[in-house]
Design a binder for these strands. Structure first.
Lengths: 250, 250
DNA sequence: AGACTTTCTAGTCACCCTGACCATAATGGG
DNA sequence: CCCATTATGGTCAGGGTGACTAGAAAGTCT
């Protein structure tokens, strides 16, 4: 306070990375794509896929590139949004590293491609990934927890749940996404009424798919609408429920 | 694709800053705190307050410090949340600068303190700040637009509107915040019913305030609840309306 | 083929919330 | 004392929701 001069060190060694939380619904649980780290620090530990932002690319661009590298998918029918940035000093032992976390949602994706770091990539149930706080490197446990929270709340009032379904899909496919991520059972009839009456949510294809058992279900495509209002549930507060078998976060 | 080696340049010169979008409601318009830049680039232009993140502080910490420096307020009864990060190459002519934008909401704040850069700080109606795209330096026009969008949507389903009111406040004070930011008129009776019946939103103080005219209004304090469900409006989509532009509310 | 199971899909109904509206209370001013 | 103004309370019809019942359309088992 003795002098009002600006800080003497406006610039110092810092790196910027993007980290991806890639979600998909497999079987009856929400899964996240993790990589086994191939170098220090945390060699052999699990972490979110990610990498350094290059000098000539923007943040979204870098996230899209990493996504393509890890999953082989171009961000076509696949949701990608910025989640939040994390930059506590000491979050990376190598030095000051600010990371911009992205959230990606996609249908049951093909077998993960080996990352550019020659690290093994695999799908892990988020419940396990969160419970094994021992497992995730850096502050990726906290990032994952924030991502789960974001995904749960976005399902309430947007149509992103369709990003988890490969087109064409049935109403039951869509309902299954909600049930897995929220960890609750939804009434099939009421769910159908809600999503079919929400303008722009579902677009009928006219075809039907005959499953192994039961009456064949009509097939739909995503209708293009972004928001759903009023929200799907009247109750609102979905947060904190057990999805994917996780006991939740502290 | 010829070789799978990692990028050769993981680290390059980059700086990290925090920029603040500080909103308040003055008179009948949403205002944002801007600074007149005291040095190049954009010398003399308007910009969001902000500054470099220091080597030893986290992002939230840096935002809190900047907020204190600019407004003289410690983040007591004042909402502060991370908005988003912006890092397009070329957004800053000085080089590669990634900025983490924060959104701050506060009651009609005291006269702005001169920034540490000896730059003049002032309140500007967001309508003007956005319209005068000529005015805002860097990509701060886009950041401001995102912040307005965030503020509008958060009013729908959270209780952050109370952050704009100095305690104790009346229901009309609170309603005025919504009307200004959304640019619509709300029915006083229905608004009261909604906010008073939402558990944890308002906490009666038992006192009343007699305004210049009309029946005295009961005074309330913030009740501590974070979310409001169902949302305040049935219609939902508030985005895209003219708020704070001074063009009047319909 | 017929009964059974399973899932999809269409209704019904009571309840609550909302938005529109009317009415009354409580203050200051002419 | 009437009036303007704001605060606050109440009514009422309509729509959406959750709980529930019922029928439709497939496969399976005997």
């Amino acid at each position: 306070m003795t002098h009002s001069a600006p800080p003497a060190v406006p610039r110092f060694p810092v790196s910027v990375t993007v980290d991806l939380v890639i979600f998909t619904v497999r079987d009856d649980a929400l899964h996240v794509l993790l990589v086994e780290r191939g170098k220090e620090p945390f060699l052999g530990g699990s972490a979110l896929p990610g990498g350094y932002v290059r000098p000539d690319e923007g943040l979204d661009e870098a996230a899209l590139r990493e996504l393509r590298e890890e999953t082989g998918l171009d961000g076509g029918r696949l949701h990608l949004e910025q989640l939040r940035s994390y930059g506590d000093p000491g979050r990376d032992p190598r030095g000051r590293v600010i990371t911009v976390a992205y959230l990606a949602l996609g249908p049951d994706l093909p077998a993960p491609v080996a990352g550019t770091d020659a690290a093994r990539a695999f799908w892990a149930p988020v419940g396990e990934a969160l419970r094994a706080d021992s497992g995730l490197s850096f502050d990726h446990g906290a990032i994952l927890a924030d991502a789960v929270e974001r995904a749960r709340s976005k399902l309430e009032y947007t149509t992103v749940a369709t990003s988890f379904c490969r087109e064409p899909f049935t109403v039951s496919d869509l309902r299954h996404v909600y049930e897995v991520i929220w960890g609750i059972a939804l009434d099939p009839s009421n769910f159908r009424r809600k999503v079919t009456r929400t303008a722009g949510f579902l677009e009928p294809t006219g075809e039907r798919r005959t499953s192994e058992t039961g009456r064949p279900a009509a097939l739909y495509r995503f209708g293009g609408a972004a928001v759903m209002s009023p929200p799907l549930l009247r109750s609102g507060d979905i947060a904190g429920r057990g999805a994917g078998g996780g006991s939740g976060r502290g």
